[in-house]
Simulated assay, not measured.
Amino acid sequence: MSLTSAERFFYGIMYNEEIRGRCLKIAALPERERGAAIRELGYSFSPGELDSVVCREFYRIPDKILKLLGPGDMRDIVMSMWGNYM
């Protein structure tokens, strides 16, 4: 089974320190520049696609990974951006 771009992004942030570091730098960019920067990393997905992956996979993330994300975890960030709070 091949992963979708949104799944690759999600798992990259969770388990790949290099991708997580790059995404932290992207998060510091002005909002209008973030989408292009994510696409430059090789990802292409809609907010809804990422939202679906986060909703499906969030509860499977090991606690040690959740602690890496800090108080503003991915679920909170994604849900607040697209108004689909859990």
Rank of each mutant, 00 (worst) to 15 (best):
M1F: 00
M1P: 07
M1L: 02
S2P: 13
S2V: 01
S2D: 12
L3F: 06
S5C: 02
S5W: 08
S5G: 10
A6E: 00
A6G: 00
A6W: 00
E7K: 00
E7N: 03
E7Q: 06
F9Q: 01
G12I: 01
I13N: 09
I13R: 04
Y15S: 04
N16I: 01
E17A: 13
E18N: 04
E18H: 06
E18D: 15
I19C: 04
R20L: 09
G21S: 15
G21F: 09
G21N: 15
G21C: 09
R22D: 05
R22L: 00
C23P: 08
C23Y: 11
L24I: 13
I26P: 06
I26E: 08
I26Q: 07
I26L: 10
A27I: 05
A27C: 10
A27E: 08
A28R: 13
A28C: 03
P30T: 04
P30A: 11
E31K: 12
E31F: 12
R32S: 02
R32I: 11
R32T: 09
E33T: 08
E33R: 11
G35C: 02
A36M: 03
A36W: 02
A37I: 03
A37K: 02
I38G: 13
R39V: 03
R39N: 15
E40K: 11
E40L: 08
G42P: 15
G42N: 12
Y43H: 12
S44Y: 08
S44P: 07
S44F: 09
S44W: 07
S44Q: 10
F45L: 04
F45Y: 08
S46Q: 13
P47W: 08
P47I: 05
G48T: 13
G48C: 09
G48H: 14
E49W: 01
L50M: 14
L50G: 05
L50Y: 13
L50K: 10
L50H: 14
D51K: 14
D51R: 15
S52H: 07
S52I: 10
V53Q: 06
V54Q: 12
V54W: 11
C55F: 06
R56W: 15
E57A: 02
E57T: 01
F58E: 05
F58V: 02
Y59Q: 07
Y59S: 14
R60S: 11
R60C: 14
R60K: 15
I61V: 15
P62H: 00
P62G: 05
P62C: 07
I65S: 09
I65F: 05
L66P: 00
L66K: 04
L66C: 10
L69N: 05
L69D: 02
G70W: 02
P71D: 03
M74C: 13
M74V: 09
D76R: 15
D76P: 01
I77N: 11
M79G: 00
M79Y: 10
S80E: 09
S80G: 08
S80K: 15
M81Y: 12
W82F: 14
W82N: 15
W82E: 07
G83A: 00
G83C: 03
Y85T: 14
Y85G: 11
